[in-house]
């Protein structure tokens, strides 16, 4: 009979295989109980209904006069300023990321690599350091305004760009490198004639992708005073000026949609 082939020793294993999903269920249940009971929900404020109503009202009837009034503090100029922060920040960050990427890229096959390991840790540290705190630190150094935003974006983006670049280097095709090497090229020539041309389209593609993210962060950095559209946004929310919030939201959504579409088209052509 088939059943007798299961020996006594493997019985615990069989039970484990059959029932170990219960452990997962219990673990998930414990985590969710912890999460739900740990938060004390404040519930809705009494004013929640009226506030949401006025937000919807403001979104439906935005403050069109704010779009352009020639003062330099209007929607169009601040959206352009936001884009400028993101563009300049991403560009500087891409330049700084290249050496970081070569530092963090794993070359050989050894399991523990001191150079690439240390580079990866540094990049993780930069990535985890909150961008808002960076912006506040740079505001101390250069004063409030979009310059601080540029610096915050350019330092914070290194974390992600460096990681993406280093992975691109790890996965790149070494054929061109080897061809130049076998023809007697030195390491400088290999880098300029083989490595860079192979890797550049991917680098540019990642930079464009990071630019899309930077546009989003540049639009909120203003909330702490680092320039761009975020500053009038937070003022409008604090003063409950919902038509103004509505037009700024529209502006941000439109800006992000246009930039995402443009960048996606460019990236499709690159890779």
């Amino acid at each position: 009979m088939m059943q007798t082939t299961i020996s006594k020793q493997s019985l615990p294993l069989v039970i484990w295989r059959r029932w170990h999903w219960l452990l997962w269920v219990v673990a998930v249940a414990v985590i969710y109980t912890w999460a739900v009971t740990g938060l004390h929900f404040t519930g809705l404020q009494e004013s929640a209904a009226s506030v949401s109503q006025s937000i919807v009202h403001g979104l439906v009837q935005p403050d069109w006069a704010y779009v352009y009034n020639g003062s330099g503090e209007d929607l169009v100029s601040l959206v352009l300023q936001t884009l400028a922060i993101a563009f300049l920040g991403t560009f500087i960050s891409a330049l700084i990321s290249v050496p970081f990427a070569f530092w963090a890229a794993r070359g050989g096959r050894e399991w523990l690599h001191l150079r690439s390991g240390s580079g990866k840790i540094i990049l993780t540290l930069i990535r985890t350091f909150p961008e808002i705190v960076l912006a506040i630190m740079f505001i101390k150094a250069v004063g409030p305004g979009s310059y601080a935003g540029v610096l915050a974006v350019s330092i914070h983006s290194i974390g992600m760009l460096g990681k993406l670049f280093s992975e691109a280097i790890e996965n790149m095709d070494r054929g061109a490198d080897e061809a130049i090497m076998s023809a007697g090229g030195n390491s400088g020539q290999i880098f300029v004639l083989a490595t860079l041309p192979t890797i550049l389209p991917e680098f540019i593609s990642y930079t464009l992708y990071r630019f899309e993210i930077a546009v989003r962060s540049a639009s909120i950095l203003g909330m702490v005073g680092a320039g761009g559209i975020g500053t009038p946004m937070i003022f409008a929310i604090q003063t409950r000026n919902w038509p103004r919030v509505g037009i700024i939201l529209l502006g941000i959504v439109l800006m992000v949609l246009v930039i995402d579409t443009l960048s996606e088209q460019l990236r499709k052509r690159l890779v």
């Binding site: 404040t42 519930g43 506030v51 937000i55 909120i220 909330m223 946004m233 939201l249 941000i252 949609l257």
Partner: peptide
């Protein structure tokens, strides 16, 4: 796509106005 364009802190600022200060 529209929902994805909104940055997280911007959403937070709006929902703090609706739900009040707190984890909700």
């Amino acid at each position: 796509d529209l929902v994805r364009t909104l940055p997280d802190l911007l959403l937070a600022a709006i929902f703090v106005a609706i739900f009040g200060i707190g984890s909700t």
